Computed example of a mutant assay.
Amino acid sequence: MNWYEKLNQYFPIEEMKSQQHMELLLSEKGDIYHKDEGPNHVMMYVEMDDFLFIDYLFVSKNARGQGLGKKLLNKLKNKLKPIILEVEPVDYDDTDTEKRLRFYEREGFHHAKSIGYKRRSLATKEITELEILYWSPEEEDEETIFDKMKQTYETIHTYKDEELYGEAYEKVDEVLSFNEDRT
């Protein structure tokens, strides 16, 4: 099974980029978009000058609980830049969502309570609400994280969207919102 199939089996369709999208990012934005792959993991991430964004992190079921996820995160933490990622809200019918959130909390990630993130999936046409988690060596504020998330959305998520999907994703201001009152 190749890296894309592993991701596609684990992540919901509404969260997945197409394989062509990710391969274009790797080839055309290979200076910032990276794939870290091993027999039991796939991690797709963005490295900008002042932050990292984890696009996908998959650890196979037979390797969970052995410290592989922690090791992969530590590799990124050692770069001493804020790390941002998107997660599904906890769904008590899906224990993976709760385990995933607890894992990131144990690793020092904070929930960005003031950042709202809702986007329409081009695959399913459904509105998906995701939560933003972040880790920061310098304790960046949520407004800074918000700006970095907007940059990620515009640079990575919507990269060649019309060419790849036949239509454009929503504009960044329709997808991401910042509300200090939510904290």
Rank of each mutant, 00 (worst) to 15 (best):
E163S: 12
L85K: 00
K35W: 06
M48D: 11
A168R: 12
L68G: 13
L133F: 04
F146W: 05
K148F: 02
G166L: 14
R64H: 03
R102M: 14
N62Y: 07
M44T: 01
Y159E: 14
L122I: 14
K70N: 15
K29I: 03
Y33C: 05
K148L: 07
Y165G: 12
F58R: 05
T183A: 15
W135G: 02
L101H: 08
E143T: 08
L85W: 00
K125D: 14
H34R: 07
R64A: 08
T183Q: 15
E180I: 09
S60V: 04
N74I: 08
E163R: 10
H111N: 10
L133K: 01
H41Y: 06
T95Y: 09
M22Y: 09
R100S: 08
M48W: 05
K118I: 15
F58E: 03
M43P: 00
I156C: 09
K71T: 07
T183V: 07
I115R: 07
Y104P: 04
H110A: 10
V172C: 10
Y165K: 08
M149R: 10
R120Y: 12
K171W: 09
H34Y: 01
E163T: 13
K70R: 15
E140M: 06
D49A: 13
G116H: 05
E107D: 11
I32N: 02
V175L: 11
D147M: 11
S136Y: 05
T158I: 14
Y10K: 01
Y159Q: 14
N74W: 04
H41Q: 10
N40E: 06
E140Q: 07
E142Y: 04
Y92A: 13
I32H: 00
R102D: 14
H157R: 14
K81M: 02
F58Y: 01
E86L: 11
K70S: 15
I115Q: 08
L130I: 04
E14A: 13
L68I: 00
D147H: 09
T128E: 11
E5R: 03
S18H: 00
E15T: 05
R100W: 00
E126N: 12
F58M: 06
K150F: 06
M1G: 01
D93P: 02
K125T: 09
N179V: 06
E142R: 06
G65K: 08
L80D: 15
